[in-house]
Nucleic acid binder design. Structure first.
Length: 652
RNA sequence: GGCGAUGUAGCUCAGCCGGUUAGAGCAUACGGCUCAUAUCCGUAGUGUCCGGGGUUCAAGUCCCUGCAUCGCCA
C-alpha cells in the first residue's frame, strides 16, 4: 500500500502555535503508523508565502517579502523536529518549481475555458483590503473600521467553479469517506445546496505584486487558491515526476476546520478542471481552545509548541494532544490538563509499569528474558493474550479512522490490565518459593512480551519514548523495521534477550516546579457567574506567589492612535502597538486629551480577558496611578517607562 | 433569520439499530501491597442523563417544543 498525507501549508503571517502543531503531529503520527503497517509513505508540509498581508508585514519590518517569508518559514521548519515530526518534504510556495507548476496549471485551465475575465464592482474597504457584501455593512460602514467603503469596480479573472457543483455534490454523496468526520461532510453538503458562485482568482498588480503572475496576463497575479492549494501537486512532481502517479491517487489532506471550504469545495473543483482524479480523503479537525476561551494573538494566550516541549518534552506533548482531543471536535488546552495527563497516564501508569517490570526482570531473572514455562500458563494468562491481541486490532482500526484518542484509550486499558496482572501474580512472592520458579518465569516472560507490544504500538505516537522502551527491552533493531502485522501479536519476544535498564521513561513532575494549578473549575450552572466575576483568588495572607504574579502579562505598548468615544465622557479608544496592533478602551478621558497620547509608551496588561465597553472590544488594560487631592478631586497618571524601549517588551 | 452540532457523576467524556439496578478515566475518601517513578491494587460513592410535552409494555436513546453553548450560511 501507498500513503500520501499532507498538512496544509501554513501562512507565514504568524509563528507556529499549538493548532499548527496539532495538525502536523497528527499527520506525522498517521504517517508513522502507515509505515508501521508496511506502507510506502510520503508526508508533506510547508509554508504558504504570498499575499498582501505578507507584503505589508515585510514593509513594516523594513525587509523584503522574501526575507520576511524566509524567516517565518524557517521558524516552522525548525519547530517540527522539536516535536519529533519528520516530514519527507517541506514545500514553499515561493519555490521556483512551485511557481512554474502554478503557471502551467493556470494556463491549462485557462485554455480549457474554465477561467474567464470579468468586471465587477462592489464596496471595497481599504482597511480590510477586500470587498464587503451589502449585508456585512452596518449603516453603510465597515463594521471593523467604521469607515464608508469605496465603490470600486475592478476587472479580474474568475474560475468557473459553478460548472462543477453538481459533479462535486455527487462525488461527496457517493463517497461517504471523502470528507470526515461526518459533521464536516454535512456542513459542506449544506453549503452546496445553494448555488455556487464562480471564484475570483486574481488580483491586479496595482494592488498586489507579491504573488505569482498569471501566465496569460502579466497585469495580474493569482490570488491564494490557485497558488496555495496546488502545493499538494507540486510537492510530488506534477505533471510527470516519478512520484506523481504513485502518490496522487492516494492523497489525503489533514486540515483544521477553518479552511474547510477551500479544501472541500474550491480544491476538488479545481482538480476536476485540471483533469486530474480527486484526492482520496479530507480529514478535518477542530480547534484548541485555551482555558475554555479562543486562542488569539490579541488575547495573548497563544500556546507555542516550543515552550511546551521545553517544559514537558515532545513525547508528552504529542501524547497529550492526541489523547485529549476527540478528532473533529474542539478541545481545551490547559496547563493543568497536560500536567495531569503527564503524571497520571505517562508517569504513573506507563512509566511505572515499565520500571517495575524491568526491575523484577533484573532481580528475578538477571535481566535476561526467561523461557516461558508452558505447564504453568493459566486461563487468566490466555485471557491476557486475547486482550493484548484485541488491543492491537482496535488500535489499528482506530488509527486508520483518525480516532487517535480511542486508539490510545485501548492501549491504556492494557496498561491497567498489566498493572493488575502484576499485583495478582505478585512475582515477589513467587520468588520466595523455589517450587514456583516455573510460574515466575512465565509471569516475567508475559511482562517482557507485553512491554514489547506497547513499545511497538506507541512508536507512531511517541517515537522517542517508544525507542527508549525498545532499547531497554533489547529489541530496538527488531522493532525499528517491524511491520505491525508480523510483530503485533503475542510471543515475539525471544527468550534470552538481554535487557538494559535505563533512566525512568517519564519522571513524575513535581507540583512545586509545575505551573500553578488552575483555579477550581466552577460548576456548570455557576460558570457564567464566575466568568463575570472572575475575581482573582487571593491568598489568605493577602500575598501572592511569584508564580501567581507571573500569570499577569505586562507589556510596553506604544499608543498610535487615540479618540474619544461618543456618549462616554470617561472613555477613550486607544490603538496601541504591543507589538501587534490592539484596541484598548481606557477610562482616562477626563485626564488626558487624545492628541497628547499618541506616541506615548505605556504599560498594559496584555492577557486580560477582552471586554466590551460601549460596543468596542477592549483587548487589555492600561495601567495608571490614581490619587485624590485635598479637595477630593481625582488625579490620574499613566504608567510609562523610564527610557525608550521597543513596543511589546515584556514587563516583569 | 436559516441549517446543523452539542448539552450524561465535581472535571473530561463513552453510551451502536429504544430493553435488566446509567458507565470509564481523572479528582476525592478509606483500606491493602512493597516489585516500582510517594508508584500500584481494592472499596466507596454521589447523577431531575438541560427543561417541558408526546410515542411505546419500555426512552439517556425516537418525535415535537423551549433554553443554553458552539459552528456554518445569510
Amino acid at each position: 500500500m501507498t500513503t500520501y498525507i499532507t498538512t496544509p501549508i501554513y501562512y507565514v503571517n504568524a509563528l507556529p502555535h499549538i493548532g499548527h502543531a496539532y495538525t502536523t503531529i497528527i499527520t506525522d503520527t498517521y504517517s508513522r503508523f502507515r509505515r508501521l503497517c508496511g506502507d510506502d509513505v510520503r508526508f508533506q508540509t510547508g509554508t504558504d508565502e504570498h499575499g498582501e498581508k505578507i507584503a505589508q508585514a515585510a514593509e513594516k519590518e523594513g525587509c523584503s517579502p522574501r526575507e520576511y517569508a524566509d524567516r517565518i518559514s524557517n521558524a516552522f521548519r525548525e519547530t517540527w523536529p522539536l516535536l519529533d515530526v519528520a516530514p519527507d518534504h517541506f514545500i514553499r510556495t515561493t519555490n521556483p518549481e512551485h511557481i512554474k507548476v502554478v503557471q502551467a496549471l493556470l494556463q491549462q485551465v485557462y485554455e480549457r475555458d474554465d477561467i474567464y475575465f470579468a468586471e465587477y464592482s462592489g464596496q471595497y474597504c481599504k482597511g480590510c483590503e477586500r470587498f464587503l457584501t451589502d449585508k456585512e455593512l452596518i449603516d453603510g460602514k465597515c463594521p471593523d473600521h467604521l469607515t464608508v467603503p469605496d465603490e470600486v469596480s475592478e476587472q479580474n479573472y474568475f474560475f468557473r467553479m459553478s460548472k462543477y457543483q453538481d459533479w462535486l455534490i455527487n462525488h461527496i454523496k457517493s463517497n461517504p469517506d471523502y470528507i470526515t468526520p461526518e459533521r464536516y461532510r454535512n456542513e459542506v453538503l449544506s453549503f452546496l445546496s445553494e448555488p455556487l458562485e464562480d471564484l475570483c482568482i486574481s488580483r491586479p498588480c496595482s494592488r498586489l505584486t507579491w504573488g505569482i503572475p498569471l501566465p496569460f496576463d502579466e497585469n495580474f497575479v493569482t490570488y491564494v487558491w490557485f497558488d496555495a492549494l496546488i502545493n499538494y501537486l507540486t510537492g510530488i512532481g506534477w505533471p510527470d515526476g516519478e512520484n506523481f502517479d504513485k502518490y496522487w491517487a492516494v492523497a489525503e489532506h489533514v486540515i483544521a476546520k477553518d479552511i474547510l471550504k477551500p479544501h472541500a469545495i474550491y480544491w476538488p473543483t479545481m482538480i476536476q478542471a485540471m483533469g486530474l482524479p480527486p484526492y482520496k480523503k479530507l480529514h478535518v479537525h477542530g480547534y484548541w481552545n485555551v482555558d475554555e476561551t479562543k486562542m488569539s494573538k490579541s488575547i495573548g494566550n497563544v500556546i507555542r509548541p516550543g515552550e511546551l516541549v521545553d517544559e514537558y518534552g515532545a513525547d508528552t506533548v504529542r501524547y497529550f494532544l492526541l489523547r485529549e482531543m476527540s478528532f473533529g471536535r474542539d478541545a481545551s488546552f490547559s496547563t493543568q490538563a497536560i500536567f495531569d495527563r503527564r503524571n497520571a497516564d505517562l508517569a504513573n501508569d506507563l512509566g511505572n509499569l515499565f520500571s517495575r517490570s524491568l526491575t523484577m526482570l533484573a532481580k528475578y531473572a538477571d535481566s535476561i528474558v526467561p523461557e516461558l514455562d508452558k505447564a504453568s500458563v493459566t486461563e487468566d494468562d490466555r485471557l491476557l493474550v486475547d486482550a493484548l491481541e484485541k488491543m492491537v486490532d482496535e488500535y489499528r482500526q482506530c488509527m486508520d479512522n483518525f480516532e487517535f484518542h480511542r486508539a490510545l484509550q485501548a492501549v491504556w486499558e492494557i496498561i491497567g490490565m498489566l498493572n493488575r496482572f502484576i499485583v495478582t501474580n505478585a512475582p515477589w512472592e513467587l520468588a520466595k518459593d523455589a517450587a514456583q520458579a516455573g510460574r515466575l518465569r512465565t509471569v516475567l516472560y508475559f511482562l517482557a512480551d507485553s512491554l514489547r507490544l506497547l513499545a511497538l504500538v506507541l512508536r507512531p505516537v511517541m517515537p522517542t519514548a517508544a525507542g527508549r522502551m525498545a532499547a531497554a527491552l533489547g529489541v530496538e533493531e527488531q522493532l525499528a523495521k517491524a511491520v505491525l502485522a508480523d510483530e503485533g501479536c503475542w510471543g515475539k519476544m525471544q527468550s534470552g534477550t538481554v535487557l538494559n535498564t535505563g533512566e525512568a521513561l517519564f519522571p513524575r513532575l513535581d507540583k512545586k516546579t509545575a505551573q500553578p494549578a488552575a483555579p477550581e473549575k466552577p460548576a456548570k450552572a455557576e460558570k457564567k457567574k464566575a466568568k463575570e466575576a472572575a475575581a482573582p483568588t487571593e491568598e489568605q495572607d493577602g500575598l501572592i506567589s511569584f508564580d501567581y504574579f507571573g500569570k499577569v502579562e505586562l507589556r510596553v505598548a506604544e499608543i498610535v492612535a487615540a479618540e474619544k468615544i461618543a456618549k462616554a465622557d470617561k472613555l477613550l479608544k486607544l490603538t496601541v502597538k504591543a507589538p501587534e496592533e490592539r484596541t484598548l478602551v481606557a477610562g482616562i478621558a477626563k485626564h488626558y486629551r487624545p492628541e497628547d497620547l499618541v506616541g506615548l509608551k505605556v504599560i498594559i496588561v496584555a492577557n486580560l480577558k477582552p471586554a466590551k465597553l460601549m460596543g468596542i472590544t477592549s483587548q487589555g488594560m492600561v495601567l495608571a496611578a490614581k490619587e485624590k487631592d485635598a479637595d477630593g478631586n481625582e488625579r490620574l497618571v499613566l504608567s510609562t517607562v523610564a527610557a525608550d524601549i521597543a513596543a511589546g517588551s515584556r514587563v516583569a
